[in-house]
């Protein structure tokens, strides 16, 4: 903390927890841009500026049924692509693919983005039970598992298509596996599920278990039917005009809230990592580490 010696207040930046400021802030030496002579005591008016004039934010119209279907199709397709053996993933999130230092100079720096980080996170280095479920991202496409129409590839790639030398587990019958993924959940689907599950939960606690179960089943059935209604194929196929209609699926908003209430009670488990750190939140900790800690439980 460089500010400590000179500035005389904790944290060194922004006067957080420093002396009372009365709505004005004193700039730390390092913060002043070089045009301003920091030796002269520069006092900036730290009051909130005037509110922005009211601005009418343009709002996109809701999705039509047709668009809904298109997006859904696209998402499923993308999910299947990600599931295929040819998908490679090396997201280097910490290396500035997003954020401020997006700019790169030269190939070396670009390549660095995609390299494996040889840095051990002490929180995840210890083997844990859940690690067996983690799916390791693929860095090289797995070409050996599926057949290719080789005559349409340049000859220099043929050896690669058979599978790399290190990876020569040539299966007897290569096959073009069809993807098992047939749906991609959207937030609405999850809502429905949650609602149904909430009803089932009712059933386990209350006396009239049978009734609630029936209710839940009925609900799921209704939801399914509502879903099928939206699909306008069948005899009346090819209706290019009607499919554009607005999407007017009502959603049980009230029911949702009820369910959420229930969960509020539940989520108070005895181990709550955030509560554990709660007392220290006001400290000058950089609590980025906590974020990572949340990833496993």
């Amino acid at each position: 903390m460089s500010g400590r010696g000179r500035g005389g207040f904790r944290g060194g930046r922004g006067g957080r927890g420093g002396r009372p400021t009365n709505g004005t802030r004193t700039l730390g030496r390092d913060d002043a841009p070089f045009q301003i002579d920091a030796d002269v005591d520069v006092v900036l008016d730290g009051k909130p500026s005037e509110l922005f004039p009211p601005y009418d934010v343009p709002k996109a119209p809701n999705l039509t049924k047709k668009e809904e279907k298109q997006v859904q199709n696209f998402l499923v397709f993308r999910e299947q692509c990600h599931d295929s053996p040819l998908y490679t993933e090396a997201r280097a999130w910490n290396k500035g693919t997003t954020g401020a230092n997006k700019r790169t100079y030269g190939q070396e720096q670009i390549n660095k983005r995609y390299q494996e980080e040889n840095f051990v996170d002490p929180f995840t280095a210890v083997p844990m039970y859940t690690q067996q479920f983690l799916v390791a991202p693929r860095t090289l496409p797995d070409l050996s598992s599926r057949p290719f129409a080789k005559e349409f590839f340049p000859p220099e790639l043929h050896s690669t298509l058979d599978g790399t030398s290190s990876n020569k587990r040539r299966k007897l019958g290569k096959s073009l596996g069809l993807s098992n993924i047939t749906s991609y959940k959207t937030a609405e689907d999850l809502d429905l599920e949650q609602l149904a599950a909430g009803m089932l939960l009712d059933a386990s606690t209350e006396e009239g278990a049978q009734d609630s179960l029936k209710k839940a089943l009925e609900f799921v059935k209704n939801a399914e039917e509502a879903g099928e209604d939206g699909v306008l194929y069948g005899d009346e196929d090819d209706d290019w005009v009607k499919n554009n209609g607005d999407n007017e699926d009502g959603e049980g908003g009230e029911g949702q809230e009820e369910v959420e209430d229930e969960y509020d009670d539940e989520s108070e488990d005895d181990y709550n990592a955030e509560q554990y750190f709660d007392g220290n939140q006001d400290d000058d900790f950089d609590d980025e580490g906590v974020d990572d800690g949340d990833a496993y439980f």
Binding site: R78, C81, H82, L86, Y87, T88, E89, A90, R91, I110, Y114, R138, T139, L140, P141
Partner: peptide, 9 residues
């Protein structure tokens, strides 16, 4: 987004 990082690069 669709086919992954290697082909994209």
């Amino acid at each position: 987004e669709m086919y992954g990082e290697l082909p994209s690069r």
